[in-house]
Design a binder for these strands. Structure first.
Lengths: 200, 200
DNA sequence: GTCTATACAATGATAGAC
DNA sequence: GTCTATCATTGTATAGAC
């Protein structure tokens, strides 16, 4: 028999979600979250590095998804196809059932500068991991970097559209549309540049 | 006659630079900085929003530089020429004499996760401002976003090279070289995409 | 309008007991 | 793993001094 109730982490997450929804992020203290979960502040900080991390639960898995997605792209893929593989792998983290949850988290994020800073950092971590794995595949570091930025933009942009949309549908569809639009924008940029330099 | 010693902000910056160099960022407390400057903690936090901001002194001006640089690009410029104008404007913030200082700041940044997070946030603020002003000029939002990412990469990448380089020279030269390299990478990406889609 | 004094709330770390 | 307890530090708030 366990000497304490199981799933402390899950209880903390649940308590935090409730309290953040009730009073907002800043008005909720770490001690209050712990108390509602039937635990203490010390235990909370054993499970989460800091208060902000509670809201980014599971985000760390995105890095591995992107890297594995890129690594798993078939040989002979074009650079954009490799990128697609990495970005669409990210979408598997967000099933349609969680869309309502994500809306709530999104609202919290925009309420606190502290959380926005952390969100930007997470985004940059994903971008950097993606850039690294693309660089392994593409042997041109700068091309890999540009693709990583572009892919992450499509992912986050698609995510925002998906969250805001009234109709249910898979995130991957929206993101794929975004990716195609960015691809077109880069294509026109490339050809515009070539045309203008050819004109000289 | 002043009733107190002037230039409190300057003294705080100087005291912080000394203490950070002596003991590192984390081992220096806000109270110690204030004390060495002959002030109190309260005053320090009147001049800086938080401890991290002490190390990003002046960074906020970069946003205006980028925006004004883009806005000042001559009519009829190509998208890349507009971008050049914005990015090279950023370089005016960093005269060659400050290169040694920047090296010290750079070392501190890599010593603390807290500072890295703030640095990433500053970078994203600059990117976002640049993206906005490029979007005004270029009427294609996604193209503007890709260019902003690319330009900021050239700026930060060039900055790192400039910091590390043993030879003295203007930052703008290094950054211009980076920009050209990224431009070439995007050009080849665009034509590769066009070629591969044409081949179908 | 800038600084000081004091008190305060909250984060996060640490040590030792169960 | 969790708890109690204590602690340093950040950052805020208030009221007053010059």
């Amino acid at each position: 028999m366990a000497r304490w109730e199981p799933d402390a982490r899950g209880r903390l997450l649940h308590a935090a979600a409730d309290l953040f929804a009730e009073r907002g992020y800043e008005a909720t203290t770490a001690a209050q979250i712990a108390e509602r979960a039937g635990l203490t502040k010390t235990t909370l900080f054993r499970h989460f590095a800091d208060k902000r991390e509670i809201l980014f639960q599971g985000q760390d898995a995105l890095v591995a998804l992107a890297v594995d997605g890129v690594a798993g792209a078939p040989a002979g893929s074009t650079p954009f196809e490799v990128l697609h593989a990495g970005i669409l792998a990210l979408c598997t983290m967000h099933p349609a059932e969680q869309r309502a949850n994500q809306r709530g988290i999104d609202a919290l994020l925009s309420s606190s500068p502290e959380l926005q800073e952390r969100a930007v950092f997470k985004r940059s971590t994903i971008t950097e991991a993606l850039r690294g794995s693309l660089a392994d595949r593409l042997d041109d570091g700068r091309r890999a970097a540009v693709l990583a930025d572009l892919g992450v933009r499509a992912y986050y942009g698609g995510f925002a559209v998906w969250i805001a949309s009234p109709v249910d549908g898979p995130l991957a569809d929206v993101v794929a549309t975004e990716l195609a639009a960015y691809e077109a924008a880069v294509g026109s940029l490339g050809s515009a540049t070539l045309a203008s330099s050819a004109a000289r």
